[in-house]
Design a protein around this nucleic acid. Structure first.
Lengths: 210, 210
DNA sequence: ATGGACTTACCGAACGGTAGGTATTATCGC
DNA sequence: GCGATAATACCTACCGTTCGGTAAGTCCAT
């Protein structure tokens, strides 16, 4: 039984079998985002996907397996993408803007998946995926920490302010992502760089500050 | 039948009846925060509260009525509190710090309630309370807008940067609230003023910036 | 007798999951 | 080449349990 969320051992078979599984997953993401995981029944998912319950169980093993498939591989991908940016980009501001952009791109690719994942991150501690989500949250935060550490190394930020800066940065990413997901606000091409500048410079008028 | 969420027309009766209803509400908030609304059954709530289902229905009318009771009055209170601060505090920085503190105090008073409400705000669009939550979100955002408008009026922030500043401010409040709710990080007494300063000044070292 | 606060027992519907099956294709052994 | 077998991809019908909610009742104070 191929369980997409676990990664298939046979790439060819996985590619040939993936279309139906992907279709089920897409429908599930839409419903999970709109209703929430617990309020969406398996019956609704399979009806929306035009298959039967055992078919869904054949591909994903369980309702939870399905939800896991929606989040694990994509979040792995995001972490890898961020890791890659950190490893290749030397200039701190540009590096940070690209990290932010990677996060925005993640939700732009599939807003329903983004809504579902954001809902999980801010949702109940007791849900089945919680420990897995917590691990991703830690991974991502470690990446932000490392990014901010580059600003310290470059003398752009005081070491004592790293914690505060990471928190502010995460807040910026979260709030803009939410605006996009729930209000359809554009995440324009210049936004990441703008956010980096805001983070570093603040909002006060320079003359008023003096 | 007194439905606490709707506001009782008889204050005396409401006060005399409130203890059991409050106890049910407290247990519900705990379970909703830990499991999520949809994954928490009425049976679990009444078992935790040590009453029977019809008793819960007697006080709250429905599961949804119970959830509404957990959010409506408290959020009304928060909005009123913020409104009051805006009306009485003239100095922009101090006013903003006090608004931030009001938000922190809101979740400190009852973290389970806070977790439940935050989960709803970032949760599925389709849930029953969504329209009501959306109204509160708008109200709160209008208050942040007004607060930021004070900075413009005082010449502290450029008018063109208000949108960005409000978003950043909301991000700061969200991220620190989440740290508190999910990681137990302190929301110390100096934090609101620190956040106002960060918002205005940014994180860059002044010398490095020059 | 009445009303408020609570109860037991029950309702129809729905839940996630599965037993047993079918159809098709590929492979194997003779 | 052919029949048997295995694997894959899907199905119908069903399972035991639980869901939110309610009918009918009891107890107690006034």
């Amino acid at each position: 039984m191929p369980v997409v969320g676990s990664g298939a051992t046979d790439p060819v078979a996985s590619e040939e079998l993936a279309p139906i599984a992907r279709h089920i997953a897409r429908e599930a993401a839409r419903l999970f985002a709109a209703r929430g995981y617990d309020a969406t029944s398996v019956r609704e998912i399979v009806e929306a996907a035009g298959v039967t319950k055992p078919t869904m169980y054949y591909y994903f093993g369980s309702k939870e397996g399905l939800a896991e498939a929606l989040v694990t591989a994509p979040l792995d991908g995001l972490c890898d993408r961020m890791r890659s940016i950190l490893d290749r980009e030397g200039e701190p501001r540009r590096m940070l803007a690209r990290l932010i952009e990677a996060n925005f791109e993640f939700v732009r690719q599939d807003p329903d998946r983004g809504r579902f994942i954001y809902g999980l991150f801010f949702g109940p501690l007791g849900s089945g995926l919680a420990s897995e989500l917590a691990r991703f949250a830690e991974r991502i935060e470690a990446l932000w920490d490392e990014a901010m550490g580059r600003f310290v190394a470059a003398g752009l930020i005081d070491r004592s302010r790293v914690r505060g800066a990471v928190a502010a940065l995460r807040g910026l990413v979260i709030v803009h992502t939410i605006e996009f997901l729930y209000r359809g606000t554009e995440l324009g091409p210049g936004l990441p760089a703008r956010l980096v500048a805001d983070l570093l410079e603040g909002f006060a008028r320079r003359e008023a500050h003096r």
